[in-house]
């Protein structure tokens, strides 16, 4: 499955447009990571735990979007956008959407 945030695939032609597909996940941080984050809030610096957590979550959202695209019979998702929003205190929603297409 090809994923791209361009509207075209260089050198290839889109034969079918299958519509919007999306994937989302809401994740909360856990206490252990929060503890480290508390320390980093004093000293500053990268919160590796959170970076990984958000990366995993984003991957999960992307996988869900791809699952939708697969069920539509697509072989590529184009013009992909990501968005992050904090839903409640300590939890964030990772959202990704794009257009499912068939390319030759």
């Amino acid at each position: 499955m090809l994923v791209s945030n361009l509207e075209i695939v260089p050198g290839k032609r889109v034969t079918k447009h299958l519509g919007l597909v999306q994937g989302s996940t809401v994740r909360a941080k856990h206490v252990g990571r929060d503890l480290m984050a508390g320390l980093k809030n004093i000293f500053g610096g990268e919160l590796k735990g959170y970076t990984e957590l958000l990366q995993e979550s984003r991957q999960e959202a992307t996988d869900r979007m791809l699952e939708q695209a697969k069920s539509l019979g697509a072989n590529a998702v184009l013009n992909v956008r990501f968005s992050t929003s904090s839903v409640t205190q300590g939890a964030a929603e990772l959202f990704v959407y794009g257009t499912a297409v068939v390319i030759e």
Partner: peptide, 24 residues
């Protein structure tokens, strides 16, 4: 939109992320 360059045979989504905290 990228230029129509024949060298661009492959395309793929790439990303990078970081969480960083400000100090006290």
């Amino acid at each position: 939109l990228p230029p129509p360059d024949p060298a661009f045979k492959e395309s793929r989504l790439v990303g990078g992320s970081v969480v960083i905290s400000v100090d006290y």
